[in-house]
Nucleic acid binder design. Structure first.
Lengths: 238, 238
DNA sequence: CAAGGTAGGTGTACGCCGTACACCTGTCAA
DNA sequence: TTGACAGGTGTACGGCGTACACCTACCTTG
């Protein structure tokens, strides 16, 4: 017993151990039970010890999000973009069901965490490899956004949001910072695709209203088609 | 000045006055500044005074959601269901942009508030009046769900969630309680439409996985169509 | 091998939160 | 006139995130 306690104490705290314990606690007891105090207790440590490894609770949440998003299967190489995207998104869904706190956590944060950017970037890459124009890929990502994962919707607002003023930003180009653009080339590409493609719209990287209506009309047109052809769910395989 | 203070004090606190002040505070200062203490101060009153009109903070949030959702325009009578739904949803979007705290608040709560149920019910009514089968309307509501408003996704899970056990509920029919069904007939109708329509699926009111894939494939098919016909956003009106 | 810097766990304390509970006060019915 | 009651007040409690000073065990370097 003393031996076990000793072993536990000897195992040093680390950012990863904290993140994993936090995910486990949120999975099992719900996100509302995830306090620095409860988490520290689970780790057999005093609350302030955590702060040697994570800056604060928000950073802890960001780390947890990255743990969860990192569990999404990598894309399987496939000639067909549609299969690839479909499998990937279904994998993401399974992950988010394993971690019920994750969708809300993702939506409530800035969502510029590395794992999310990686995920989105490789998704854009799949579309591009499938022959999509950067312009279409841009709108498609917006359309997929909140329906499928609950994020990506406001991704390109991040640069705009950085400028604190509530009014329109005086320096509008809103391109990604270069080091970010280098790490995530597909994202960088589509971030500007929609704006410079006709110069009458001088301002922001993308037009929220247009993106929203694009997705809405896409859904509505599909729904209308189903309606017209008398769709019914009885045509299921089994 | 004493006169004004007197007038302010004389105006009695009421649930509506509290709700409106809470919405205003959340709109202007952000939802994270909405504490019972701050809200009470805005109303020139001591924090505990609020509890004579709202049971607790969660109930306050529910009331705020109803205030916001109540601002969505009523449906305009129109022979075309598509126009009706489109206008309604764009109105909802405007409302949610006026109250940026609302989407997250809605998603983080049980979302069985009266205004939300009314909104959803009348939306279903529009589809049904347009000739949709209850079955199709059911799936369509799921597909619209999170993309358009961020809610309705888990609506029909409410009854399932009421049974606390994490495993499958022993009494599966999961129909709406009769008094709810009476108030929201269209919702009641589609809640059971998908389940009893072939009896091989004995259990729950609807199949989450199927709903998700339905929406996903709807999107993907539409996207594929755009892709094949070389869609570009340059075809915009102005 | 001695010295001392440093990484990392500890203890205390502060200000904020939601809210339970006892209390007071003005109004109105009987 | 009385007394019930609706509604605002004051105090207090436990929980939260976390600043800050401390302590301690190890590792580097002469």
């Amino acid at each position: 017993m003393a031996e076990q306690a000793d072993m536990l104490r000897r195992t040093p705290l680390s950012r990863d151990r904290i993140l994993l314990a936090a995910v486990a606690l949120a999975d099992e007891a719900g996100i509302e039970s995830l306090s620095m105090r409860n988490l520290a207790q689970d780790l057999g440590v005093v609350p302030m010890a955590l702060y040697k490894h994570v800056a604060n609770k928000d950073e802890l949440l960001d780390g947890m999000i990255d743990v969860a998003v990192g569990e999404i299967d990598p894309p399987v190489p496939d000639a067909d973009w549609k299969h690839t995207v479909r499998r990937r998104i279904l994998s993401a869904r399974q992950v988010l069901r394993r971690h019920p706190w994750a969708p809300l956590a993702i939506e409530s944060r800035n969502m510029a965490t590395p794992a999310i950017l990686t995920y989105l970037d490789s998704m854009v890459g799949t579309f591009r490899a499938g022959g999509f124009s950067a312009d279409l890929a841009h709108h498609v990502m917006h359309a997929m956004g909140s329906r499928i994962l609950g994020f990506s919707q406001e991704l390109f607002d991040a640069s705009r949001r950085a400028g604190r003023s509530g009014t329109t930003n005086p320096d509008p180009p809103a391109a990604l910072p270069p080091e970010v653009a280098a790490r995530f080339p597909h994202l960088a590409e589509i971030a500007t695709a929609a704006s410079h493609d006709n110069e009458s719209v001088v301002g922001q990287g993308c037009d929220d209203q247009f993106e929203f209506e694009f997705a809405l009309d896409l859904l509505l047109d599909g729904i209308e088609r189903l309606h017209q052809q008398g769709w019914t769910s009885s045509r299921r395989p089994r």
